[in-house]
Nucleic acid binder design. Sequence first.
DNA 1: GTGAAAGCGCTAACAT
DNA 2: ATGTTAGCGCTTTCAC
Lengths: 361, 361
Amino acid sequence: MPASRAPRVTIKDLARGLGMSVATVARAFHPGGAIAPGTRAAVLRRAEEMGYHPNALARGMITRRTGIVGVVVSDLANPFYPAALERLTSRLQRAGYNVMLVVTEPEGAAAASEAAALRLLLSYQPECAIVLATTLSSAASRACREAGTPLLFLNRHPGDPEAAAIVCDNARGGAAMADHLIDGGATRLAFVGGRADASTNAERRAGFLARCAERGLPAPCEWPPEGREGAFTYAAGQQAARALLGQAAPPRAVLCANDILAIGFQEVARDEFGLRVPRELAIAGFDDIPMAAWPAHDLTTLRQPVEAMFDAALDWIGRLGQGIPFPAAPLRLAGTLVARGSTPAFSRDTHLEKETSCSMP
Amino acid sequence: MPASRAPRVTIKDLARGLGMSVATVARAFHPGGAIAPGTRAAVLRRAEEMGYHPNALARGMITRRTGIVGVVVSDLANPFYPAALERLTSRLQRAGYNVMLVVTEPEGAAAASEAAALRLLLSYQPECAIVLATTLSSAASRACREAGTPLLFLNRHPGDPEAAAIVCDNARGGAAMADHLIDGGATRLAFVGGRADASTNAERRAGFLARCAERGLPAPCEWPPEGREGAFTYAAGQQAARALLGQAAPPRAVLCANDILAIGFQEVARDEFGLRVPRELAIAGFDDIPMAAWPAHDLTTLRQPVEAMFDAALDWIGRLGQGIPFPAAPLRLAGTLVARGSTPAFSRDTHLEKETSCSMP
DNA sequence: GTGAAAGCGCTAACAT
DNA sequence: ATGTTAGCGCTTTCAC
């Protein structure tokens, strides 16, 4: 026998209780419903009394608007994502959507389980799926397309040109950091990357290296070296520090592809190499996770425009309900350089313009 | 016009395409279905070709088993919870459930929005709701009860005796920590609490104080003082350190109600008071968040039996499907003391027994 | 403004 | 083993 739960009050019960038809009762729950104000009030009052609550599943089946938004995450160990997930969920909730959470394995190995998880999500007919913090296997993307579920990448964007994306302008951020470090007096710079397959990593790196070249500096040294896999983790940051700072001519300023890397790097720089930050070594990160502001780290970083990204996402999702598909061109929003104690104070409080977008060819 | 999406392939389309009845087709998708193996194979093959995927909403309406599990979180800023959420979601997914995420405002102020969010969740007819990391307003609890949705508290338990709960044996954990610190040689102990209304806080404190008394020590000093609100945050840990370590006879060993507090405390102890840990001050936390193992913190802590808690939760949820309600008595599972460098090495690697339960009167 | 009827996509008795 | 029928709870024509 399946679960025997207390039967819920349905619209039928309510209609019976009121001596009305279900149609009338239903109209009371819809803004534009053609119903006499008095009738509506009566229905609402009785509903309250009887403890009636509409069944979203039944409603969703008919209207094809389930109010469900799928959110796919994979790297909750990076503090940036819990914070983002919390905000995103809050905002979707307030807009009347409900978040269905899908966690995919961080390592690509489990592409099969990822596809399974996504299929499960799709079976609930979400209005769209938001991919936070990870790329999706092509199998999973295809599944969405087949199911007709719009896909929105937040923070990263996949190779897939058909997918909509809202991202931080990572290249500009990387460039701004290069300026900041160079203005701080450094000439021997370094870049510490995370996962090579992440668009965030590639763009931040590209922006940083390009600006260094523009300003006539020698090419920064890099970690991880060609052919070696990086990661967006504390441990990877430590490793990078041991490698880069152990060199004959170690860098004097380092940009790490994200904050958690930078924090790991800084830890080793101080504890194992006895370097004073920022005097002997300047360190910067990317994201502005809460920890970055802790006195122990006091990390200069590029704050992602998270709220602006969510503003846009909610806007897009709202339009979806009116039949307007997601824009094809990725939306890039500029971040803010937050100068703290891990870099010299020369150009403190430089702020990038608050927001900017740029379209694709 | 509502969203015009590509119409999905339904079971009817599939039945038509196969020249069978919908009933037969449906049976192919159910394990015990009375259907010829050949027919099933044909259906499955054709389904694949036509891109048919069952609609979970429609199925849920009939079977009253939606496969949806609501998960309510509020404090994603505490690293313990993202990690727990990730694991819990993964495991539920693998068991065929889908997680609907509800984020409630951390501060009790927004009890109204909490109730609204929960109502929204309930309208999707979840099979149960798991409350992770927070207590629920009584309005919200009542809403669940009225809707007939079983409620399971994970990690905390509310005053509400009707609610099911799976928690770490916090009192024993607190006692184990007292032993560990006392065995390490300390006599002037302190306890730093978090939110006073959290059961975790109360239990850890009670266990700690009781054991101190049993071992004949003077009552540990405490923070926050009576009437002052604490919090489970880094900043609160810093504050506590400034208050406790600034005293005439500062404590030599401190148990913080969770790791993030302990890390904040430790930071201030080292940087502002110049104390050497663990020589001059022993510090311990509770939870074993990933950061606790970082060399910079190297924090002794009481690891919560997270996986065992989830084992039990999944077990209970599985039974729910067979009509077996959640047990009324809270399940308490013992944690493990993980001794690291922030406390003296005397009784390193003490492990509590792996698991224990205790019933309520 | 209200009611009757059809049906969303699927499952679960019933027949056969 | 398969088809027929009746719904799940709700929205949405269409009459009145």
